[in-house]
């Protein structure tokens, strides 16, 4: 299968182009904060509860809050029905997302508490962990939780020997490398960086720069979504 044709990718995008993104803040009434993100074919709903008292008592940390995240894919999110319940992959994503968010939240302000983040993937189309992180950080800000900064995430990859931004489904499955990156947009500090496949050092550096620039674009959209909710325009 030809993934790059006449300098264009399979879905007609250029190498450094993102898929269309829509972010909405405060979509759920019962949660303390929430966000809904559509990123290409991805549809993710994130909800935040807390800070609230950690239960059972023995998991409490007397010096800081626990950030506990759950990444879950709906049975209907992929073309073959996904068997329900946590699997190896979703446990891993839950863990890395909570570690990334733990770094930005002022957890020391809420000793003995937990901040729970639930991320539900309603439809998956490559890059769900970045979509989830993006949604989760908007939901956290919506919940009024004190944070050092936002978290903005985006994936980069290598397809047919080219470094391309924001892989689609086919590119992810048939490409040569996939590199999700999450950063704190203000400082540029990296919160998450994983790599699947192979890249040379030059390719890697090029990919990271491309990814960080894209994260800044995502950051602008996140800000816009929150401003829309809180100023009503």
């Amino acid at each position: 299968m030809e993934l790059i044709k006449d300098g264009k990718r399979i879905d007609g995008r250029s190498f450094d182009e993102l898929r269309p993104i829509k972010i909405e803040a405060g979509v759920l009434k019962r949660a303390d904060g929430s966000a809904y993100v559509e990123w290409g074919g991805n549809k993710v709903l994130a909800a935040v509860y807390g800070p609230r008292e950690a239960q059972p008592r023995h998991i409490q940390n007397p010096t800081k809050a626990i950030v506990s995240c759950r990444y879950n894919m709906a049975a209907f999110s992929v073309s073959d029905r996904k068997r329900q319940g946590p699997d190896r992959r979703s446990v891993e994503i839950s863990k890395i997302v909570s570690e990334a968010l733990d770094r930005v939240i002022f957890t020391e302000q809420f000793p003995r508490a937990t901040i729970d983040v639930y991320m539900e993937v309603l439809q998956a189309d490559a890059g769900t962990r970045c979509t989830c992180l993006t949604a989760a950080s908007v939901a956290l800000a919506d919940a009024g939780i004190p944070m050092r900064d936002f978290v903005s995430a985006c994936a980069v990859g290598k397809v047919d020997g080219q470094i391309v931004l924001d892989l689609g489904k086919e590119e992810d499955n048939l490409g040569e490398a996939d590199l999700p990156i999450a950063i704190m947009p203000r400082t540029g500090e990296i919160l998450l960086l994983q790599m699947d496949g192979h890249l040379t050092m030059e390719e890697f550096n090029k990919a990271v720069t491309l990814g960080m620039n894209a994260c800044m674009k995502i950051y602008e959209m996140q800000k816009e979504a929150l401003m829309k909710k809180y100023t009503g325009d």
């Binding site: 800000a141 936002f150 929150l226």
Partner: peptide, 8 residues
């Protein structure tokens, strides 16, 4: 002025 987390 409405500000967001991390804003200068």
């Amino acid at each position: 002025e409405i500000v967001l987390p991390g804003e200068f």
